[in-house]
Design a protein around this nucleic acid. Structure first.
Lengths: 210, 210
DNA sequence: ATTTTGAAGTTGACAGTGTAAACATCGGTG
DNA sequence: CACCGATGTTTACACTGTCAACTTCAAAAT
């Protein structure tokens, strides 16, 4: 009779809420924006009374936090799936991490926005979900360490390289989904992604630069 | 009797509200966080009835937008002040832009947060204040163009370099003020800033990297 | 098979929010 | 000096998050 934490299968009285609530929440974030999403609105769209969510989440923030956790999990797995396909070459794996990060942001902007909305809105993301402690950052760190040990990447430490890499990749993701880079077509955006990683890898120093 | 848009001098019935409201708003953002700030709370702290702000701003969002504009303006001027002191050397000027951007974020985290809270909260930042159209980004672009023309920086275009530069600098700023990089002391944070810019300038490719 | 029981959902209430409309007030202009 | 419009106040409303009391129903216990 134990209700497992990750309860997918149909259960309960009215179907499987909890799950449905998370889905609806994401839907509504896609349509409007994380701030304008209302708990009552979510409940209504789920076809349930306005207080029903409280049987599954202590408060609104907790529901949103679940969306965040789910997003984190999906992001991590999407990156990992791509990594699986290119075992071996450490540098390539590094590139894949960066590209996959940006791709996740562009493919799932709603997830991405809730995930990194931290200080604003009501979404007070728990510390364990902050960038550096996130599994995604840890993955970055692993892959970068591998490169660093092989002398493929240089820097003060793998950690400092990871900071640089995460910064550039995350910053670009924000531009891509928010400022949307002046409506560039998919092709040039793809080129831009690669250009971005290249500029970090090879640097932007010109011939006349000291 | 015209009330100029930027009304600093004391006027009106009850002193100079508008100005005071913006100040109080910023104060309260510093204390709690942009989302939890309430219009009624701002009014109360300004010693005024809860509807008074509506004589100066059409709605809450407009007040917050004014805070954003002010932040943008301060950021721009702080960067410019530092640039004034180092006319001449284009590359140094580029470095100053990046450092000053990060410094602004760290010195005025409240401003920085409202400014880039875009999609979340109620702060729907107008398009004209989005990163790429902001004067700050334009400044980046100018300085980078200068370097690019002199062959000090390389890349597909000044614009693409600016994207990379803004991305890394903005992403790092987020880490610094939000994830706060595990409570590093000021010294190592300073070193980190420089390391960050260096990694973009010189790249992170190691000896064994292709 | 029937009772029991507690989780899941509902209803109604409350304080607090943003905002609008009607009213009050004061300083400068006629 | 009277007026008038900008500035501030009061009252009111719809909506939010959240809580407490109530209902319902499916499975556990008898």
């Amino acid at each position: 009779m134990e209700k497992s934490k990750t309860d997918d299968t149909t259960t309960y009285h009215h179907g499987n809420l909890r799950r449905r609530l998370i889905e609806v929440a994401l839907e509504m974030i896609e349509e409007s924006s994380a701030a304008e999403v209302t708990l009552r609105g979510i409940a209504k769209r789920a076809g349930v009374s306005h207080a029903a969510p409280y049987r599954h989440f202590p408060d609104k923030e907790a529901l949103l936090a679940s969306v965040v956790r789910e997003g984190m999990s999906i992001m991590l797995s999407e990156i990992n799936v791509r990594l699986e396909r290119v075992k071996g070459d450490a540098l390539t794996r590094f590139g894949i991490c960066g590209l996959a990060y940006i791709d996740f942001a562009m493919h799932h902007p709603a997830y991405f926005r809730v995930m990194f909305a931290s200080p604003t809105q009501g979404v007070v993301v728990p510390d364990s979900l902050k960038p550096q402690s996130s599994p995604v950052f840890q993955l970055f760190l692993e892959v970068i360490s591998e490169c660093w040990e092989q002398g493929i990447l240089q820097g003060e430490s793998p950690y400092s390289i990871a900071i640089s890499a995460w910064s550039i990749v995350h910053g670009f993701s924000l531009l891509a989904i928010d400022g949307h880079l002046y409506g560039l077509d998919a092709g040039s955006l793809g080129a831009m992604k690669r250009g971005l990683l290249h500029s970090l890898y090879s640097g932007i120093r010109g011939e006349n630069g000291p």
